[in-house]
């Protein structure tokens, strides 16, 4: 098998490899209300420093997930559209081959992982990410005194001068796998949730395993609303979006979108 020859070589993991899981998400834009609960949950879970006003002015916001907000239509018929954007954990990630020191690689479970210790801060990956989800630690991370006890002991605090991004709560995944082996009982779909999915009041973010044909995300991604963000770039994201249901659209437009029509996901291979 090609995968055996590759061994633990970083980079693109061929679907259907040795690993038992291929983690992924489905984000239903129709359900997203733009409440930003996921942003705050991520902030607390992953020890992300508090974003002060200055960071927003300078476009240096440290957010691993952000809600993009777009306005549609003319006043008074204005509609707000929200898209949660986080690291797409691309199967063919543009950020991975440009890092000179292997600081960003693909795990065998389909995650795009960042090795903070290796990062020298060339920021080439940040430039090359078409989703702009990689954030650089311009400042040393700081928390107010009252929040020191809040920090999550499972997640490292990143120092200044390196790139960080969504890890899909890899510490939770690892903990779930440890518990799985201790209990001797395989985890069920939905047992494991990253912070953003857990906090979403409308369950717009659904986490799961693409290798499990019967998982909720596998079933949802088979629908006609499913699409990949910037599919035309060929990055093979592991995150599938479900597009908004618009009652004003004709039947034809609702099923066939312009650019992002659903194609079978190339990475799912039970």
């Amino acid at each position: 098998m090609a995968n055996e020859q590759q061994g633990a070589a970083p980079g693109r993991v061929i679907a259907g490899g040795e690993s038992l899981h291929r983690w992924g998400m489905v984000i239903d834009i129709d359900l997203c209300t733009g409440c930003q609960a996921c942003v705050i949950a991520c902030q607390a879970e992953n020890n992300i420093p508090i974003n002060v006003e200055d960071y927003f002015v300078k476009h240096r916001v440290n957010q691993w997930i952000r809600i993009e907000r777009y306005w549609e239509g003319e006043f008074p018929n204005v509609k707000a559209r929200f898209i949660p954007v986080l690291c797409q954990h691309c199967g063919n990630a543009p950020c991975e081959p440009v890092c000179p020191v292997y600081a960003t690689q693909h795990s065998t479970e389909g995650l795009n992982v960042q090795t903070y210790n290796r990062c020298v801060g060339t920021r080439y990956c940040g430039n090359n990410c078409p989703y702009t989800v990689r954030v650089f630690n311009w400042d040393a991370p700081q928390w107010p005194e009252s929040l020191h006890a809040q920090l999550n002991p499972d997640v490292t605090v990143r120092t200044q001068g390196l790139i960080e991004k969504c890890s899909m709560c890899v510490h939770r995944i690892n903990r779930a796998k440890r518990e799985e082996s201790r209990n001797g009982r395989p985890m069920a779909d939905g047992d494991l949730q990253p912070a953003c999915a857990q906090s979403c009041p409308t369950s717009a973010i659904i986490f799961g395993d693409w290798k499990d044909q019967n998982s909720r995300i596998s079933r949802l991604a088979k629908g006609t609303r499913a699409y990949h963000m910037l599919e035309e770039l060929g990055t093979e994201p592991t995150i599938v979006y479900l597009k908004k249901v618009d009652p004003n659209l004709s039947q034809h437009e609702a099923t066939v979108s312009h650019k992002t029509a659903y194609r079978p996901l190339p990475v799912i291979n039970g």
Partner: peptide, 14 residues
């Protein structure tokens, strides 16, 4: 003090 003194941001990283 890190790169905070530069005018860079998360889009313009170079």
């Amino acid at each position: 003090g890190g790169l905070q003194f530069l005018g860079y941001n998360n889009q313009t990283m170079w």
